[in-house]
Structure formats: structure tokens, C-alpha cells
């Protein structure tokens, strides 16, 4: 019964050409027209498609409740634990269907999610947190140690705090712990949810620099969900904008950053200079991507 709210192409009409054209190039990660329903009743994603190329950073942008986190969780399949379900569409990683895999299998395949709000294991030390990240890999103690050192080279601050209970470390350190923990799984792709949440601008910058470093040196691809559009577009190669569970716009990061609508809706900039609040409200009401 909820299908009724879906766009016309759900009723058997051919898909618009754009996403089809993009799938010609074998994508690293491709999400094809997925629909996600929570608790059997709440339709959250209404046909989201996106591609991530190998070795790229792709930003998933949009306001609160647009479906960014849900998209990431659909890919990492953490949805099940929250009674969500992908009811339509497919998700492929390196040419394999992954939408029915467990999170454990996905981590083994190289897809690892860093959740919004860090979610460190509070009562474990920073180092123990990192070690749990390597759970899926059966490797020797020496290799484990080498991997720990690698994480510490990217996050020297974690080395200083390796023995502290992670619940008592700062927000920035927890974010680093969470990313470091994901790195310990030797992922091919990290799904990074809202890394800037609750952090000072300087720290946000630091975290994103590290993400870029990891991307270029360790060849880890990133799909990152961000509300901080300005920063995200600066570091990403490509961007998708979600609104109400649909992709409303996508393009190269520079193009999106130059786009007038993006500027106005998400960056709060406009060519007309400062407007009165009443004008903005009126203007916004008329001009929406989704009528």
C-alpha cells in the first residue's frame, strides 16, 4: 500500500536514463534503486541509487532525516538490527550482490561502517577498541601489532591515550578511535557517518585531512554522510544530495559546490546577498526540488 507514494517509475515505467548510463562502468560499490522500510510500515528510502568508484571519496549530503544514515546502514546491513529492511533494489560491491549479507560477512569483504556518534566501546581502552576492529581477521600477534602501529601513525594522539578507557577520551579522540577501529579491519571501503558531529571546526578539518590521507595512501574508498556540506564537498570527489529519501541531485563535488541551489539551500549563500527572513521563507516555499 505504501508503493503509492513512490514516483512514477516504480509502476513499471522504464527507469530514467541517467543511472543506467552510469552503471555501464563497472562500479566498485553500486546501490541500485533501493527502498528501505522500517518496522514494516515506515518508508524511509524511496528509490536511492548511487555509485562509488574505487579509490574515491563520495559525499552523501542532505538535511536531518533525508535518509543518509539509512543509506549507509542499508549498505553495511546494520539495518536488520533496527528492524529495517531493504525491500526493493540491489546493492553490489565489487560485482557481488551484498544486500543479503550479514555485517560480519561485509566486514570480511572489506566494507566497514563508522557509525554516527562514534559508538566506541566505552569501557574498553583505546587500544582494545582498535583491537576489536581486527576481530574478523585471523592474523598473528606480530601482524596485529604492525597494524596497530600503522593506525597510530595516522592518529598519533591515540598512541598517547592507548591505555585510557575510551569513554573518558574527548569527542575528537573517540572519532579517531572509531575510524582507527574500522581501519584495523583492513577495509577497502569505509562508510563514514557524520564524522564532524559535535566536533570543533579545527578538529573537523583534522579528521577530514586524515580521511584524505587514508584515501590516497591506503587506497581506502569512502562514502561519507555529512551535514557539514561545505567541508564535505571540499574533500570529496563526487556528491549526492538526498531529500526525503530520494537522490535529488548529484555531480562532481566542485560542480555541486558551485551550484546556485546547493549554495542557497545547504551553504546559506546566495548571489542576491542577505535577504530578510520573510523573503527566504517565501522563496523556499515556492522553489523546491520536490514539489
Amino acid at each position: 500500500m505504501f508503493r503509492r507514494s513512490r514516483p512514477a517509475n516504480a509502476h513499471g515505467f522504464p527507469m530514467p536514463a541517467a543511472p543506467a548510463a552510469k552503471t555501464d562502468v563497472a562500479s566498485y560499490l553500486s546501490v541500485n534503486n533501493i527502498e528501505v522500510i522500517y518496522d514494516h510500515v515506515i518508508l524511509v528510502l524511496k528509490g536511492v541509487s548511487l555509485q562509488v568508484e574505487e579509490g574515491s571519496i563520495v559525499a552523501l549530503l542532505g538535511a536531518n532525516g533525508a535518509g543518509k544514515t539509512t543509506t549507509l546502514k542499508a549498505i553495511s546491513n546494520l539495518l536488520r538490527a533496527e528492524r529495517g529492511d531493504v525491500t526493493k533494489g540491489t546493492i553490489e560491491f565489487m560485482g557481488q550482490r551484498v544486500d543479503q549479507r550479514t555485517p560480519n560477512e561485509l566486514v570480511r569483504m572489506g566494507v566497514c561502517q563508522v557509525m554516527e556518534g562514534r559508538h566506541c566501546f566505552q569501557h574498553l581502552t583505546v587500544e582494545e577498541n582498535l583491537l576489536t576492529g581486527a576481530f574478523t581477521r585471523s592474523i598473528s600477534r606480530a601482524d596485529l601489532k604492525a597494524d596497530l602501529e600503522l593506525v597510530y601513525t595516522y592518529f598519533p594522539r591515540l598512541k598517547e591515550r592507548r591505555g585510557s578507557q575510551s569513554g573518558y577520551t574527548s569527542g575528537g579522540e573517540q572519532q579517531m578511535t572509531a575510524i582507527g577501529r574500522a581501519l584495523m579491519a583492513r577495509p577497502k571501503m569505509i562508510l563514514l557517518d557524520e564524522p564532524s558531529m559535535g566536533l570543533a571546526p579545527q578538529l573537523v578539518e583534522e579528521i577530514f585531512e586524515i580521511v584524505r590521507d587514508l584515501n590516497t595512501k591506503e587506497r581506502v574508498s569512502f562514502l561519507l554522510a555529512e551535514q557539514n556540506t561545505m567541508v564535505a564537498l571540499r574533500f570529496a570527489d563526487y556528491g549526492y544530495i538526498l531529500e526525503n529519501g530520494r537522490v535529488v541531485m548529484d555531480g562532481a563535488a566542485q560542480d555541486l559546490a558551485q551550484n546556485e541551489d546547493v549554495k542557497e539551500f545547504y551553504l546559506g549563500l546566495s548571489t542576491a546577498g542577505r535577504k530578510s527572513f520573510r523573503d527566504v521563507k517565501h522563496y523556499r516555499r515556492r522553489k523546491r526540488w520536490l514539489a
Binding site: S76, L78, A81, T102, P103, N104, L106, V107, R108, C112, Q113, V114, M115, H119, C120, F121, Q122, H123, L124, E128, N129, L131, T132, G133, F135, T136, A178, R181, A182, A185
Partner: peptide, 23 residues
């Protein structure tokens, strides 16, 4: 042990444990 650490991790945060691939 690795399993012991995973047990403590699960005790702390189910979701995060799932996310790092602990079954």
C-alpha cells in the same frame, strides 16, 4: 583473548560490535 575482548565489546555496544564485524 580475542573472543573475550569481543565479549566485552558486545557488552558495551551491540551496534558498534556489529559494525566492526563481530557476529
Amino acid at each position: 583473548t580475542r573472543i573475550g575482548r569481543a565479549l566485552r565489546a558486545v557488552a558495551d555496544d551491540h551496534q558498534a560490535a556489529l559494525a566492526v564485524g563481530i557476529p
